[in-house]
Amino acid sequence: MEVSKDLGYRFYNVFLYPPDSLSNEVRGPCGTAQIEVFGDKGRLTCHTSIPVEKLSGEGLRYEFPVLFCRELDKEMFNVGYLKTDKSGLGEFAWEFTTAIPGNGGSMNGPVTYRFLVTTRQEGSLDEGRDSVILLEGIVTLASEVRDKRVVGFKKEAKVRKTDRNASETNPLFQKVDPFHPPIPNTSWWRISIQPDLDNGSWQVGYCPRQKPYRAVF
């Protein structure tokens, strides 16, 4: 029996290194990230093989931001936090969706990502300072990834017109200030009675005998 080949299953194993040790060969990987992509769904699990505090040199800390950086335009986005367990080893899991060509993906074809475990958020991450990056790995995925987590929409605040504002704009009722200096605790209104010029000052009446028609008196 022939099997269709478009199952779209891919498995990636990304080895994570401290950024300064990429050029020296002695140290092995300090962690791995496994990425499984099945069709348009994906899952990333990551764990470190040495305590994260050893890398950061800081004291006790439980959460480290994990960033994905697109290599092409250096766009970064936070995908979650690496959390340390009692022994100090870090663990992280993230579920995502991938942009399938023809499914509205902005970029078709393989995309190279840099996987970063940092001590700071993406906003304050300075390119020139490597000390904030604890671990990094590079992976080329078959398509662009998107975060599956629900993101709240920004609600626009509804500006409600109060009745008071509406009455101020009404030309027939105008608030006036006739006295100088103004008399306290009083408000003055000019109420105008204007002829209805659109209907030629005629009053529209009602004829009881011929219901559909309107009579003019």
């Binding site: 029996m1 099997v3 299953y9 891919r10 290194y17 990987p29 790995g137 992976v139 080329t140």
Partner: peptide, 18 residues
């Protein structure tokens, strides 16, 4: 090889028969 950065694996079944 200096350092392996990542490996990607795509397994495919081309034929199967019961």
């Amino acid at each position: 090889v200096g350092k392996i950065l990542n490996i990607s694996i795509v397994p495919e079944i081309t034929h199967f028969r019961f």
